[in-house]
Design a protein around this nucleic acid. Structure first.
Length: 603
RNA sequence: GCGCCUGUAGCUCAGCGGAUUAGAGCAUCUGACUACGGAUCAGAGGGUCGGGAGUUCGAAUCUCUCCAGGCGCGCCA
């Protein structure tokens, strides 16, 4: 209903200006035009929209708020276009104006939406000069090479993917970047270890399976910590790698490829698309970051390291906090890489991505780091006019004890084990239910449904919570069939699919719909909120808002389903109700798709 | 010590400066035509929104302060 809101907003603003021409002229001259504060109604009993703007005008106009509201309403009543959309406005409480849309207006919206695959969500506009919108870079997932993906990556991956899907659906060209940790000092020990454990890997073409890379990593780390000679060789290996030594490079590539294959398995299971562009990609740009910072006069040598001192951020000693961009040994660190990446992403092609918005989906612990990086980028003027940079932080994944999620043995939980367990539990649950209900299903069916429910539950549990807070991981809760969970939403869709199966396809006419029951109108109003929710998530980058909406829509639908006969209703009512079923299914399906969650016809 | 984040019902959490009564879900209790999939629906109880002050016509929401917890804080990422 965004377009309706916009139309109404014009009428209401005009009415406000006509009601108080002098105040309006003054306000316009001051650059703060009068704002009627037209918002969606906070409660259904207040109608569809409410105008809150009368209250703050009381003081400047020296009039009672209700009197101001009355004047606005008089002007609105004089406008035929407005009256075609809304019932007579209501003045309520201290001076709120409640607007209720005419039934026909809502019905037209529903009819339009039934024919619209975008469900009322508009595509972003091309610029005035006709250029397509600039890309949005979303940096998410970003595991480290030679390490196992763990739950920490889960949130970044799931949240980042959902945000990407939503922005893509709005028509933004989205660059989904996997900023993998594929460079750095840890490769010294990995390469040294590889050379000693599997030297043939470097001479034979791509036939060596390194096996479990995590074990490999641990072995290398252990030797690095215990063996002085090994340490020495490792340091030399880093230098070799960075200076382009062919053997070192080959070993590095081998390790990356092996890792990549492992990551891909997870991404396939989660249905995640990513473009890998690791830290190493920016190597060629690191030196120029230093040179540019120096040229701009931002660089300070402190204790032998090249630093930029941050404004407004103090360190332990109370002095401005430095951000090191080049270590005293001449090496670069992640701040340098992040700056190079940021600059590259904003730069126009062919020197960069030409992005207008950068979104970093990483844990909240990196907030300070990004604040520093963003500050330097702004001071160096690497952020173009109108360019947005946002850190999208999220909290820790905790176990039921409220502490960081660990296995019983105290190790970090591997992502694949976690997914396996979710699917296993979903499968056990399904089999138990089939037995109870005396249903027979094929193994294929059971496997597929368990997979979908397991993955959906894990994703939804994560997405449905405000990402800023820590998140308590709990299989029982996320797989529960009731409550704000994936299975509950999936079930609503299954019910509608059941109706479609029994009543033939929906295939209904979408003109001349009529609704009479409150349950129908509730569902109508809920359905029409969809586009607004999407635009909210696009702006606030909080997928839990979409989850909340889908849950409320499911609840509203279940209420409707419970209280209204559909297939058994008389012909006319049946058509009207089937139309609502169809639009509900379309909305739930699209919403779930935008969360990255698959749906089912039967479960 | 400094910085960032969090504190809302027994538990897990929503809450976008707006409405006498601050919302869900779980758990607890009470109900629902043999039902288009009851994996649902209707209802009940349960709260000093961490404490205090301020801004505002109006504050869970903004500001300050204190308390509690989490995370981070110079050459790892």
């Amino acid at each position: 209903m965004i377009s309706l809101h916009q139309t109404l907003s014009k009428h209401v603003t005009a009415a406000l200006n006509r009601a108080f021409p002098e105040a309006a002229a003054k306000a316009n001259a001051a650059g703060f035009p009068l704002d009627p504060q037209l918002v969606y109604a906070s409660k259904p009993e207040f109608g569809d929209f409410q105008i809150n703007g009368a209250l703050p005008l009381a003081k400047p106009l020296r009039k009672a708020p209700r009197q101001i509201a009355t004047s606005i309403v008089e002007e609105l009543n004089n406008n035929q276009d407005f009256r075609n959309l809304c019932e007579a406005p209501d003045i309520a409480g201290p001076g709120f104006i409640n607007l209720t849309l005419r039934s026909q207006c809502l019905i037209t919206e529903i009819e339009t939406r039934l024919k619209d695959v975008r469900l009322g969500v508009e595509l972003v506009q091309a610029s005035k000069s006709g250029e397509p919108p600039a890309p949005v870079v979303i940096d998410f997932s970003s595991p480290n090479i030679a390490k196992e993906m763990h739950v920490g990556h889960l949130r970044s991956t799931i949240i980042g993917d959902s945000l990407a899907r939503i922005l893509e659906f709005r028509g933004h060209p989205v660059i989904r970047l996997n900023h993998v940790g594929d460079w750095g000092t840890q490769f010294g020990m990995l390469i040294t270890h590889l050379k000693q454990v599997a030297p043939e890997a470097l001479t034979t073409a791509n036939v060596v399976d390194l096996g479990d890379l995590v074990t490999f990593y641990r072995q290398a780390k252990k030797r690095f910590d215990e063996d002085k000679d090994f340490q020495m060789s490792s340091r030399k290996e880093v230098v070799k790698l960075q200076s382009g030594d062919l053997t070192a490079l080959k070993a590095w590539k081998l390790l990356c490829e092996q890792s990549r294959r492992e990551f891909q398995k997870i991404y396939d299971r989660l249905d995640i698309n990513l473009t890998e562009r690791g830290e190493s990609f920016y190597n060629a740009y690191l030196q120029s970051i230093i040179t540019d910072l120096e040229r701009l006069g931002l660089l300070v040598v402190d204790e032998g390291a090249n630093c930029v001192f941050l404004e407004g951020i103090t360190g332990k000693d109370g002095n401005p906090q430095p951000m090191i961009v080049q270590k005293k040994d001449g090496g670069f660190n992640y701040a340098t890489t992040d700056l190079a990446a940021l600059r590259y992403r904003f730069k126009k092609p062919p020197e960069g991505d030409g992005a207008c918005r950068l979104i970093y989906v990483t844990d909240a612990g990196q907030a300070n780091h990004f604040a520093g990086v963003f500050q330097i980028a702004k001071r160096a003027q690497w952020v173009p006019e109108g360019g947005r940079i946002e850190h999208v932080p999220f909290g820790l994944v905790q176990g039921e004890d409220g502490k960081k999620l660990k296995t019983r043995a105290g190790d970090t939980v591997r992502l694949r084990d976690l997914l396996d367990e979710a699917i296993m539990k979903a499968s056990a649950d399904l089999r138990r239910r089939l037995k109870e209900e005396g249903r027979e299903e094929t193994e294929d069916f059971i496997t597929n449904v368990s997979n979908v429910i397991g993955i959906a539950a894990v994703k939804y549990a994560d997405l449905s919570q405000n990402r800023v807070t820590n998140y308590q991981f709990n299989f029982e809760r996320m797989l529960a069939l009731q409550g704000n969970t994936a299975p509950y939403l999936l079930y609503a869709l299954v019910r509608i699919a059941g109706i479609a199966r029994k009543g033939g396809s929906f295939n209904i006419h979408t003109n001349g719909l009529q609704f009479n029951e409150p349950q129908e109108w509730c569902l109508v109003r809920e359905l029409l909120k969809f586009d607004n929710v999407i635009s909210e998530v696009e702006e606030e980058l909080l997928p839990n808002r979409l989850c909340n909406y889908l849950f409320e829509l499911s609840q509203t639908f279940n209420r409707f389903y419970d209280q209204m006969p559909i297939l058994k209703a008389p012909e006319q009512k049946r058509c009207n109700r089937l139309a609502l079923c169809e639009l509900t299914a379309n909305t739930l399906k699209l919403g779930m798709t935008l969360l990255g969650i698959p749906t089912l016809e039967r479960m």
